[in-house]
Computed example of a mutant assay.
Amino acid sequence: MRRYLVPTIVLAAIGLSLGCLFRYIFNQADEGSVANYLRSGLHGTGLALTGWAVHLYFTSRSSAWVRRWPLIVELLIRSAVMAIVVAAAAIGLEAILYQHGIGERWLLGDYPKIIILTFVFTTLVGAIYELVRLVGSRVLLNVILGRYRRPTREERVLLFLDLVGSTSLAEQMGELRVQELLTRFFFDIDEAITSHGGEVHAYVGDEVIVTWRVSAKPENRTIDCFFAIRDKIAARADWYRREFGLVPEFRAGLHAGPVVISQCGDSRREVAYFGDTMNVAARLQAHCKDASRTLLVSGDLFRLLRPGPELVVEALGSTLLRGRVAPVEVFAIDRHFGRSPP
C-alpha cells in the first residue's frame, strides 16, 4: 500500500547507511574496499527491511491472533519472532553477499553485534511507528515543532461520520459485541481515509472525526473519501453478515471553515479542535437522520468542490440546525450509481 512506501524507502536508506557505518567502525582498514562497503550496505538494508516486514505483520489483520493475548505475552511473542527472523536473515545475507561463506570470526565477532544493533534499531522504529499511529504523523510533527503550544487558527475541512443505530445494536448484540463491530469498522475504513489525504482526529464512541487542511485545489477528495468508505464496507458486506449478522450503515456531515487548534492538558496532553466549524459539522451529521440522507455538505464546503457528473447534488436550502441560531446552507450529495438507502 502507498502509505507504507515512504517509510519503507526511508528505512532502506537508513539500513544502507548503518551497514556502511558498521563496516567503517568495526572492520579492519584493509577491508575497506568499495565492494565490501556495498556488501555491508546491502546487508544493513536487508536487515532493516526484514525487521520492518516483521513489524508490519504484527500490525496487520493477519496477526489478530496474537492481540487476543495479554500485552506482555504479545510483546514476548513479537520480540522472539523478531529475534529469530533477524538472526536467520543475517546469516542468509552473509552467505549470499560474501563468497568466502560464514566464518568463525564473523559468527563470534560481527554476528552478535549485528543482531544487537538490528534488534535495537527495529525496536526503536517500531516504537516510533506505534507513536505515529497513536497520535498521527502530522500531529506528532506539529507537536515536536511546537506549532500548537499556543492556539492556532487554521482553515480545515471536517468530516463527522457516525454509525447508524449503535444504541439499538448495543441492546440487541451487547456492548462488547458492538465494540468489536466498531473496532473492525474503524480498521476497515482507515485506508480509505489515509489514501484520500485525511487525518483521523478522534474516535468518539461510534463516531470518527476526520480532518483535512483546506488547499488551493478543489476539495473533491473529501467527498471521494466518503464514497470510498462506502465502497469498502460494501465490498466486505458478506464478511460483516457472517461475523455480525449485519452490514454497518453510517451517515456523515462535511463542513469547511476556521478551526482553533491547541495543545490541552498536562498529565495527558491532547491536540484539541475548537470553534463553530466543529459544531456545524457535528450538527450536519446529526441532521442526516431528519433529512433522510447519508451525506450532507455545508454551502461553505460545497463552494470549494468541483462536483463531477457521477454525483447527484440536491440543494436543501438554508437549514436551521439543532442548537444554532443562524441557518446553514445544506446540500445532499450522492452518486448516480450504487446509491445507498437513507
Rank of each mutant, 00 (worst) to 15 (best):
A35E: 10
S292N: 15
E191K: 13
A216C: 07
F160H: 02
E191R: 15
R153T: 15
V260Q: 11
A170H: 01
S137F: 14
A237N: 05
R303V: 06
H336A: 13
V204D: 09
D266E: 14
E180T: 06
P112H: 13
G92C: 03
L141T: 12
E155I: 02
L75F: 11
V259L: 14
P307T: 03
T277Q: 11
D30V: 07
Y24S: 12
L159F: 08
G265N: 04
F58H: 00
L42I: 10
E207K: 14
V178L: 08
L108T: 09
V66D: 00
T211H: 09
V204H: 08
L145P: 00
M278E: 00
D188H: 11
R156H: 14
N220V: 08
E104A: 10
R324S: 13
L161N: 03
T183A: 15
Q172P: 00
F121C: 08
I77D: 00
G32L: 03
L182H: 04
G92V: 00
G103S: 09
E154M: 07
R2V: 13
W212N: 00
D162R: 06
G41T: 01
L320C: 14
Y37V: 04
T123P: 02
A127Y: 15
D290Y: 07
G308I: 02
D188L: 09
R133I: 02
R283N: 07
I77C: 13
G109L: 06
G51Q: 02
D162Y: 05
F274R: 11
E175G: 07
A48Q: 10
P70S: 01
V157K: 05
V259T: 15
G44Q: 03
L320P: 02
V86L: 12
R78F: 08
S166A: 05
I84H: 13
R230L: 11
N36Q: 08
I223D: 01
N220T: 12
R230E: 12
E94D: 10
G92I: 00
F226C: 14
